[in-house]
Design a protein around this nucleic acid. Sequence first.
DNA 1: CGTGATACTGATACTCGTTCTCAACGATTG
DNA 2: CAATCGTTGAGAACGAGTATCAGTATCACG
Lengths: 142, 142
Amino acid sequence: MPERTELRLTPQRGAVLEVLKAADDHPTAAEVYERVRVAAPGIGSATVYRALALLVSTGHALELSLGDGTAARYDANTSRHDHAVCERCGRAVDIDQPVPDGMVAEIARRSGFTITGYDLQFRGLCPECQSGGAGQGPGRRQ
Amino acid sequence: MPERTELRLTPQRGAVLEVLKAADDHPTAAEVYERVRVAAPGIGSATVYRALALLVSTGHALELSLGDGTAARYDANTSRHDHAVCERCGRAVDIDQPVPDGMVAEIARRSGFTITGYDLQFRGLCPECQSGGAGQGPGRRQ
DNA sequence: CGTGATACTGATACTCGTTCTCAACGATTG
DNA sequence: CAATCGTTGAGAACGAGTATCAGTATCACG
């Protein structure tokens, strides 16, 4: 599978892309599937997964692993940015502040790695959940 | 299930903890299972998962999602640190340099989140894979 | 228009990591 | 010794994602 020779923008793929562009949250593949079924009722989940993978590989979408052990999320914003994830409600918002270059260089020097990128997720409580209710906070990892 | 009332250090749990402490890599649950079977031959995978969850919840181990979509990894080093993951061989090494406090504060201010922590993984090539061979690099995410 | 090549589709079976269920086991207490 | 209750191992169940496959749509060309 060296290079895509051809690539059609089928109705299904268009629908997936529309859903992704219309979403201001960061839907999982399953959520994308649900929403796409409104515009393309007969669509199968495999097709959604394939379309998402295609969009990611062609740079039209980003696949996010928000490090909470749950399913991958997708984002039509393809510029470099990170996320803050609410530990209570799972909502993710964009963070546009990059890690300082000096820090990356220092880490490359110390570890011997060639650093090609990084994934950074902040954890905490979103404004709604801070005020919202006093429910129990699950608390995960580190 | 408010608080652990009792907690036995059973041979199985001890074996899991030993494996974790002896590991200088960051084994997945499946790898822990394999290694534990040497010391505790009849052990079941469910027991290993339970022991790992227990160790994590009592602060004796850390569960890592290295953001590459693969299985969770475990680490007996419970102090705050991040990881650099090799994109070719999957190896993870520890990174001890924290994100500057000012950056975290700035992000909390801008997003309105109460930040309780973060997960940071650097991606790149480890020293071995840089020199090692010219194989094909997979290339994932962002 | 017909024909063949090939990309794409949806259904479904499957894999894999992880969790759940449950009967049996074992340690502790009275 | 009996009752209790946390723990165990086997295996079923689960959810996300992938592979397979037969059928369909689209394209290039004569």
